[in-house]
Each structure stands twice: as C-alpha cells, then as structure tokens.
C-alpha cells in the first residue's frame, strides 16, 4: 500500500489534471436563477399584501406558495434541470428545500410507503430542520438575553 507521502505526491500530480469548476459562470448563473426566484417570491408576497393580508401572514403564505411550486416542478421533473443551471441559485431558495423533500420521497417510494417514502423523504431536509431548530433555540435564547 502506498504510504502517506506517496499519496500526497499523487494528489499533487492529479490536481493538475482536474478541471476547475467554472467559478464565474456558476456564480453568475446562481445569481440570476436565485435572484429570479426571489423576485418571483416578491411578486407572490405583493399579491398577498394586496388582498389585505398582514405582512407576517403574507410572508408565511409566500413560503407555502413557493414550497408548492418547488414541489410541483420537482414532481414534473423540471426542477433538477433548473438546478443543473442554477446550482445554489435553485437549491438555496425555499423551493430547493421542497425539492429535497419531494425528490427523496419519490425516489424511495419503491422501498414502501412507510419505511421507504415517509422515512427517507427527510434525507436532506432532516438535517436542515435539526440544525435549524437546535440553532434557533440557542440563538433565540442569546437574542433574548442580549436584547431582552
């Protein structure tokens, strides 16, 4: 077996052959896609506000509407194509959160509706909720202690 220094020397050699990601292009595409999704979300919010909803309520309904859209586009097989272009631009908006749930749920349907689909649908969303809730409890406490 190769020792550590041989391994390191090889990793150096391999590095020269590995193409770099297109940082600029990826960032630009992420910016455009993420920006467009945000602008769409703004439109949805404005619509709810125009019906006389309170601001916080409109925000919650916007999130729900965007989750619906993300879930629908995933089901139709469109969202993963958008993600090839958008990268983080489509993964990080809340529509991307919906995509992680629907894609995993669809994928694991073949392993059953309880231990397959229902258990595995949180494969990627689960960590987000776990870290979100835990960090929120701590952060909420800190904020309360800091600002009262």
């Amino acid at each position: 077996m190769a020792n550590k220094s041989q391994q390191q020397a090889y990793q150096q050699l391999a590095k020269k052959h590995i193409p770099k990601p297109d940082y600029l292009g990826n960032s630009l595409r992420a910016f455009l896609v993420g920006g467009a999704i945000s602008a769409l979300g703004q439109g949805v919010t404005n619509f709810y506000l125009s019906t006389g909803m309170a601001e916080s309520e409109a925000g919650a309904y916007t999130a729900i509407t965007m989750i619906f859209l993300g879930a629908l586009l995933t089901g139709l097989g469109i969202y993963d194509n958008l993600a090839k272009i958008g990268g983080a631009g489509s993964a990080l908006p809340i529509t991307g959160f919906a995509n992680t749930i629907v894609s995993a749920a669809m994928d694991f349907k073949s392993e059953g509706y309880v231990l397959g689909m229902a258990a595995q649908m949180y494969k990627i969303a689960g960590p987000v909720i776990t870290y979100g809730v835990t960090s929120a409890i701590l952060a909420g406490l800190v904020k309360w202690l800091l600002w009262g």
Binding site: F68, A71, L72, G75, I101, V102, M117, M121
Partner: peptide, 10 residues
C-alpha cells in the same frame, strides 16, 4: 406545507 406537498406530489 413542505411535508404535505412532499407527500402528495411523491
């Protein structure tokens, strides 16, 4: 919403 839509669309 994410749970219910996720379930239904799947």
């Amino acid at each position: 919403a994410a749970i219910v839509f996720g379930f239904l669309f799947a």
